[in-house]
Design a protein around this nucleic acid. Structure first.
Length: 709
DNA sequence: GTTAGGGACGCCGGT
DNA sequence: CGTCCCTAAC
């Protein structure tokens, strides 16, 4: 084992953590201060000093982050290839809980074949609850299943209870509290009966198990002598309760985070968890990492300027050690398509000047903000990786296929049944519910195939059931391997449905073939299903460019990245574009209206800005296509307006509200060259642009196959 | 009563 | 694209 020269490879702040983080420790780590590096070296340090890797638990925000850290730890320790230290536990709270529940869940009545319900499954089940309780009866409509899910989930993750959660969602609904209580109870009952857990259950059930079985809690607590938690600012009350249960007050618990980057309050993340850590663990040592190794001083001073506007925070000022370069630029464009062209032209320039594609990212608040740019990149055949939005495993045909697989291991899986029943012609919500009830009595897949339930239903429904039964028979005959089961689906009448339903069914079939290939990595259906549900990155994740010949043929990993800001957390690039910085869009209108919402949106902006190492471009369209082919002025984001102009590149102007400091002779039809500003014509031409935007929009819709699903 | 299909509208973020 | 709502058809 090579000796790691910690003194040389870490700064004094980092070294202190790596060497002295025993007992409860809080590391307040500013953006780009080497947070990940510190965690990785700390684990390597422990292992080098004889700590058994299997007694270390590393909790991260995504499984991808966990995998990357474990690989880096392996490299540090000189392991071959990309091997990880054997036995080291790493992953999200949810994936770790899943692993433990597969082992110990039987004690609280869950078979190790339990299903994990994703967001869509959970909503389907809640929809069934609403129907069953007759809450959507004629007259006033009840809250949507998505809204109910949000409330129930918040109640559990915040541990504040249903009433607070309802109130937070919409104070007027509190008078309906008993309805929510009823839905919650029925939803729990359905999940129990289905041997299924939603994401929240993974944590809650494990927590309950630890409470109920002190000896197990003791056992795990002794096993995980070192617990490290990354992105602690985004933990919620439930996660903290779980950690406390596992760690106790004197444990070696190292939490790392930055209160300025807390951006998941919609998942009940509470920035107080990191702020109050010293009170919660009175013996806690507090470390600070305040040297930024990532960004230029220009980018950092903008970041400092932005975050200084938040009241509710630890005051902080990051200092940069990088060489000065250029100031961030604000770029107003006359329309979303001009904005896209600007970004594209600038990217071309960067590529030509030698910046690798993988060092360029375009970030945005919401997935649909990237549409116009995607269109532009498609046209130019410039390949990109996409993070955020619809995932591979969320595609309808993939989820259909997975639902079939779920039934083979968990016959009681109501959400899966409702899904596959609904695929049949003639079977709608109501019949699906009735058939499910009839099947539940049968007790196994084999018996359900034989169940003579068609007599209870009309001809149409009976025919649908018969077709489904054929598919189930094929599955039953296919044995227990994921790849064989997927093959059984893709050779069944399901593909007839696919063909009838989707014009691009060939592509979808290819997706399923890929899925089958990928599934060969798994022997057990349960493992396969758990992985694809908990870790969308497991398959490669990103949406890819399919159309266009492409003058380049870069391998994955050498492409520009398009990402939501949320998904960009923890990542960094040489050049970053933040687009669609418009009023109402960013800060998002709804989010900003929530309690503390504006400050969270500002933190999100801060996260976006601090992703950049060398170049940062902030852009927005000053007009967007409105209804009926018209156009609307689109004022810039509040966050742009409040920036101290001294932080910005000379020439920055905010069209719409503020007059530009310079009005070059830019022709808006030729945007995005040396001078970043793209002038807005206040009168005639805007209308023309508005109309053209609409045609681009229509064009986009026609090409919607590009977006898939 | 139930289902399918068409049209209008909209879209915050994710384990 | 998804979701919702309406209407026609089973």
């Amino acid at each position: 084992m090579p000796h790691i020269d910690f003194e040389k490879e870490l700064n004094a702040e980092q070294l202190a953590v790596v060497k002295n983080a025993d007992g409860p420790c809080l590391v307040l780590a500013g953006a780009g201060s080497g947070k990940t590096r510190t965690i990785v070296y700390r684990v390597a340090y422990l292992v080098e000093h004889g700590v058994d890797p299997s007694s270390i638990l590393l909790l991260t925000f995504t499984n991808k982050a966990a995998n990357e850290m474990m690989t880096r730890i392996g490299e540090l320790l000189g392991l071959a290839g990309d091997a990880r230290p054997v036995g080291l536990w790493g992953g999200t709270f949810h994936s770790v809980a899943n692993r433990l529940l597969r082992i110990y869940g039987r004690q609280i009545g869950y078979g190790q074949n339990f299903t994990i319900l994703d967001e869509e499954d959970a909503k389907a089940l809640i929809k069934a609850c609403i129907k069953e309780l007759n809450l959507d009866a004629a007259g006033r409509r009840f809250l949507s299943p998505a809204g109910v899910k949000e409330i129930l989930s918040y109640a559990r993750n915040s541990t504040k209870g249903l009433e607070k959660a309802v109130e937070r969602h919409d104070a007027r609904l509190v008078s309906d509290l008993s309805k929510f209580t009823d839905i919650a109870a029925l939803y729990e009952k359905k999940k129990r009966a289905a041997n299924a857990m939603d994401f929240d259950d993974l944590l809650i059930r494990l927590y309950e198990l630890l409470k109920q079985e002190p000896r197990l809690a003791e056992l795990l607590s002794q096993q995980f002598r070192y617990i490290l938690v990354d992105e602690y600012q985004d933990t919620n009350a439930l996660q903290v309760a779980f950690i406390k249960e596992l760690a106790g007050p004197k444990h070696n618990l190292l939490v790392v985070g930055d209160d300025a980057q807390s951006i998941y309050s919609f998942r009940a993340a509470d920035v107080r968890n990191i702020l109050d850590f010293p009170q919660q663990f009175p013996d806690a040592k507090v470390f600070r990492l305040q040297t930024n190794y990532r960004s230029t001083p220009e980018i950092l001073s903008l970041a400092n300027d932005i975050i200084a506007k938040n009241v509710n925070q630890f005051p902080k000022e990051l200092t940069s050690v990088s060489k000065g370069l250029e100031k961030p630029a604000v770029v107003p464009a006359v329309s979303a398509s001009k904005e896209a062209q600007f970004v594209f032209n600038k990217i071309e320039q960067l590529l030509e000047s030698g910046v690798p594609a993988r060092e360029i990212a375009v970030l945005f608040r919401a997935t649909h903000h990237s549409q116009m740019l995607e269109f532009e990149l498609m046209k130019a055949a410039l390949p990109y990786d996409y993070r955020g939005g619809l995932k591979f495993f969320d595609r309808a045909h993939v989820k259909d296929t997975l639902a079939f697989l779920r039934l083979t291991v968990n016959f009681s899986d109501e959400a899966a049944w409702l899904r596959v029943l609904g695929l049949q012609e003639g079977i709608g919500d109501v019949s699906a519910g009735k058939i499910f009830e009839a099947l539940r009595a049968a007790g196994s897949l084999a018996k359900s195939i034989l169940a003579p339930i068609e007599q209870q239903f009309g001809n149409r429904v009976a025919r649908g059931w018969k077709d489904l039964r054929d598919i189930l028979e094929a599955l039953h005959a296919a044995g227990g391997k994921p790849a064989d089961l997927i093959k059984a689906v893709t050779t069944s009448t399901y593909i007839d449905y696919l063909e009838a339903e989707y014009p691009n069914y060939r592509e979808r079939l290819e997706d399923l073939d890929q899925l089958a290939v990928f599934s060969r990595n798994y022997e057990k259906v349960e493992d396969f299903l758990a992985d694809v549900t908990l870790d969308d990155g497991v398959f490669g994740g990103a949406r890819e460019l399919k159309a266009g010949g492409g003058r380049r043929a870069p391998s994955r990993g050498d492409r520009i990245v398009l990402s939501t800001i949320h998904q960009a957390k923890g990542l960094e690039w040489d050049a970053v574009f933040i687009i669609h910085l418009n009023d109402q869009s960013f800060p998002n209108r709804k989010a900003a209206a929530e309690q503390g919402g504006l400050e969270e949106e500002r933190r999100l902006f801060y996260v976006a800005v601090t992703r950049a190492r060398k170049w940062l471009f902030l852009s927005y369209p000053a007009a967007m296509g409105g209804r009926e082919g018209g156009f609307d002025y689109a004022p810039p984001s509040l966050f742009l307006e409040e920036i101290d102009v001294a932080c910005l590149k000379d020439g920055a102007c905010l069209a719409g509200r503020r007059t530009g400091s310079r009005s070059g002779g830019d022709d808006w039809s030729d945007p995005g060259f040396d001078d970043e500003s793209v002038e807005v014509d206040q009168t005639g031409e805007l209308k023309e642009v508005g109309e053209r935007m609409k045609s681009v929009n229509d064009d986009w819709k026609k090409k919607s196959f590009l977006r898939d699903v």
